[in-house]
Design a protein around this nucleic acid. Structure first.
Length: 196
DNA sequence: GGCCAGGACACCA
DNA sequence: TGGTGTCATGGC
């Protein structure tokens, strides 16, 4: 499939916003919200943090779940503001506990926390999202949930490789797991393995 | 008109 | 721990 160049964004502030907005939402709808946010914030951390939750709700409405997402954005950017939007300082301060710190924020679960680690804090982690679970299930790796798959898949990758890995898995998933009927026919026999 | 997207959370047993 | 309902918009 070639390089996917994930995550598509101008800067890390935009990635933070996109990571929350894309939760169970088609990217086309995320784009609408980002287009609303850009002229208002220019994707500068301080300007995003200065927005009220009500203002955020109006701007991100096209992405749905605006109550939860606006609160998540508020909480995340409050944390970031405390460290002057210095992602390196934040990572060094919390070290291995950074993931726990992110998970403690309302509206940020395992997948979003890992996406932030991978694309914002430069930590090479494996994002065990739904597409990854489907793909690895097709390859014979049965997993109960997010955490379980993450434990089973041990990847030693550089940061750039880990970022690309997740992008490839999701783009692959969009193509081949879109409909169940297609997935069933695609997964018949050993076609998946040969294509991989 | 129904289904679902690059989830998370509250509630329940 | 694990399963289910709910949150919401827009495209197909």
């Amino acid at each position: 499939m070639g390089p996917q160049g994930w995550w598509p964004a101008e800067n890390k502030i935009e990635i933070c916003l996109g990571a929350i907005l894309v939760q169970n939402t088609a990217w086309a709808n995320v784009d609408k919200s980002l287009e609303n946010l850009k002229p208002v914030t220019n994707f500068e951390g301080e300007k995003v943090a200065a927005l009220s939750q009500l203002e955020l709700i109006e701007l991100i409405r096209p992405s749905g779940f605006y109550q939860t997402k606006s609160r998540a954005i508020k909480e995340l950017f409050q944390l970031l503001a405390t460290y002057d939007f210095d992602f390196t300082k934040l990572r060094q301060t919390f070290g291995p506990d950074l993931r726990k710190k992110l998970l403690a924020l309302h509206g940020i679960g395992e997948e979003t926390a890992d996406v932030l680690l991978l694309y914002v804090f430069d930590v090479p982690v494996f994002v065990a999202d739904r597409y990854a679970q489907k793909l690895f299930a097709a390859l014979g790796v049965v997993s109960k949930n997010y955490h379980h798959l993450q434990q089973q898949v041990s990847v030693e990758l550089t940061l750039a490789q880990a970022q690309e890995f997740h992008g490839l898995i999701d783009e692959f998933g969009k193509l081949y797991f879109k409909t169940k009927s297609f997935a069933d026919s695609f997964l018949a026999g050993d076609q998946l393995e040969s294509r991989l």
